[in-house]
């Protein structure tokens, strides 16, 4: 079992504290939910864990060993940003090959994707494009995946199928799941953190009740 821990995360923009006193633990075999209201710094936190965003201070450790830029470590982790990230001109098949993801595994979960094998990703609808990019990250042969709003643009029936895959994939990786569809996040997660205004993380013991008492839901 691998453990990813992020702590001492400190991020300020123009003197405004975005994140401070953050602690987050992710284990392979588990899904860790990350919730927070708009502007509380969830995306920044994911990018700091990924290693592409440097704050005033941060510490990311894998099994207790400090890693300065986790994304540069081979087969350690991958990150799904909120917006399309694949370059134009690449087919779905080519993308799968570059990311070492099996296209047939994608199709076994979503048979409708079969017809897009030779299609360029950017020619797909917004929903299908999001689905393919999410699967590219989720099915990657890495130890951890960070999913930033994976359910955006997706139909409920697709989201439900995606939750099944998330549940399967956690058997061999640790997953951080952040999305505003909090019910889906709660249903998929083994542990849930809430980023509260002021940029502090709270591990929720009783997620549904804690979300109410902390003002995330009414």
């Amino acid at each position: 079992m691998d453990i990813l821990e992020a702590d001492s995360i400190w991020l300020e923009y123009n003197g405004r504290k975005v994140l401070q006193s953050i602690y987050l633990k992710v284990e392979t075999g588990k899904v860790t939910g990350l919730l927070g209201r708009n502007g509380t710094g969830k995306t920044s936190l994911l990018r700091m864990i990924f290693g592409s965003l440097r704050g005033q201070n941060q510490s990311v450790r894998i099994n207790g060993d400090y890693v300065s830029h986790p994304y540069l470590e081979k087969n350690l982790l991958r990150y799904l940003p909120q917006v399309p990230f694949a370059p134009k001109g690449l087919t779905v098949e080519k993308l799968c090959s570059l990311y070492s993801v099996s296209f047939s595994e994608m199709v076994s979960n979503f048979p409708d994707l079969e017809k897009y094998k030779k299609e360029q990703l950017w020619n797909l609808s917004g929903g299908n494009m999001r689905l393919v990019e999410t699967l590219l990250i989720l099915l990657s042969p890495v130890s951890f995946v960070l999913l930033d709003e994976p359910f955006t643009h997706l139909d409920p029936v697709i989201i439900e199928q995606l939750l099944v895959i998330i549940n399967e994939q956690k058997n061999n990786k640790g997953i951080i799941l952040s999305d505003h569809f909090y019910r889906y996040v709660l249903s998929a997660s083994d542990a849930v953190y809430l980023i509260i205004p002021g940029g502090k993380s709270v591990l929720l013991k009783e997620p549904q009740e804690n979300l109410k008492s902390l003002g995330y839901i009414s």
Binding site: Y71, K74, Y79, Q82, P84, F85, P87, Y99, I137
Partner: peptide
């Protein structure tokens, strides 16, 4: 800038 994540995910700085 998000386009760069495609390369970051492949461990290219």
């Amino acid at each position: 800038p998000d386009r760069l994540f495609f390369y970051f995910n492949l461990s290219i700085s």
